[in-house]
């Protein structure tokens, strides 16, 4: 019983310490954004690497999410006979919920994990120390451009992904279920999609913040060689997934209160 409690307490303290250092990282990143004095070339390079290169995986994920949601809502339609649900159910779910959160999850694997590994390697090879020795703030130099690039890319990718998700749904209707895609479109148009689209983008921006903060924090606190980098990446994706769903819940809840 005692070692169990001790283990639990240690875990609890560790996670509290991690939450604290995440907040500090977020605050320092925000402060490093103003005044905007970062390397423009570095920013564009990051935007290309982070945004453009993630496009294929995001498009594929979104298409499949659209397909899955249409197939899933079909079973509900068959039970209740509410045909409008094929378009509306799938469309709303993709725009406001599954699009942003699944794209966010894929993006956190593709980009967040990568950033953590990259920063972790820089810490291990003492490049970050070297920056500090040259009186360059690693947050401003390394983290701030990534933060901007990640948030911007994720929002833009979500716009693209939403579109792909809806297209994927139409494709599933047409080819897999033999429903006229116009029925799907009509169901889609019945509901007010703009609200859900906007809330989806808000979520994407928040997820971007979570991904950037968590990955920078885990990356810059790596200790202990190749194994340490592996552990940091693992911790980073786990915390990001948790953070994404907590942020998702908070935004959904706030949205419903309004």
């Amino acid at each position: 019983m005692k070692p169990l409690l001790a283990g639990f307490g240690r875990e609890l303290l560790d996670s509290l310490a991690r939450v604290g250092s995440l907040n500090v990282m977020f605050y320092r990143t925000l402060r490093a954004l103003f005044p905007p004095r970062y390397d423009r070339e570095e920013l564009f390079r990051q935007l290309h690497r982070i945004g453009v290169r993630s496009l294929p995986i995001v498009v594929l994920t979104a298409l499949l999410v659209g397909v899955i949601m249409v197939l899933q809502s079909m079973t509900y339609v068959r039970k209740t006979g509410a045909t409008g649900f094929v378009g509306a159910g799938a469309g709303l779910a993709v725009l406001s919920e599954l699009g942003p959160s699944l794209i966010g999850l894929m993006f956190s694997g593709r980009v967040g994990a990568n950033a953590a590994a990259e920063l972790g390697n820089m810490v291990i090879s003492e490049q970050v120390e070297a920056l500090r020795a040259l009186a360059i703030d690693p947050i401003r130099f390394l983290v701030a451009p990534r933060f901007i690039a990640i948030v911007t890319s994720l929002v833009l990718l979500t716009v693209v992904g939403d579109l792909c998700g809806l297209v994927g749904g139409a494709m599933a209707c047409h080819w897999l279920l033999d429903i006229d895609w116009r029925t799907y479109l009509a169901g889609l148009m019945e509901v007010d999609l703009l609200d859900d689209f906007v809330v989806g983008l808000c979520k994407a921006a928040a997820f971007g913040g979570v991904i950037s903060t968590v990955s920078s924090n885990y990356g810059l606190t790596v200790t202990g060689g190749a194994q340490g980098v592996g552990r940091a990446v693992n911790g980073c994706v786990v915390t990001t997934a948790l953070g994404i769903f907590i942020a998702d819940y908070v935004i959904t809840w706030v949205w419903f209160q309004i």
Partner: peptide, 22 residues
């Protein structure tokens, strides 16, 4: 080296999540 471990881990999470969705 450690860069390779980082790359492998990143690749693992992207590929396995994607395959789960497929």
């Amino acid at each position: 080296g450690s860069e390779g471990v980082g790359r492998a881990t990143t690749r693992a999470v992207v590929l396995s999540s994607f395959i789960v969705i497929v």
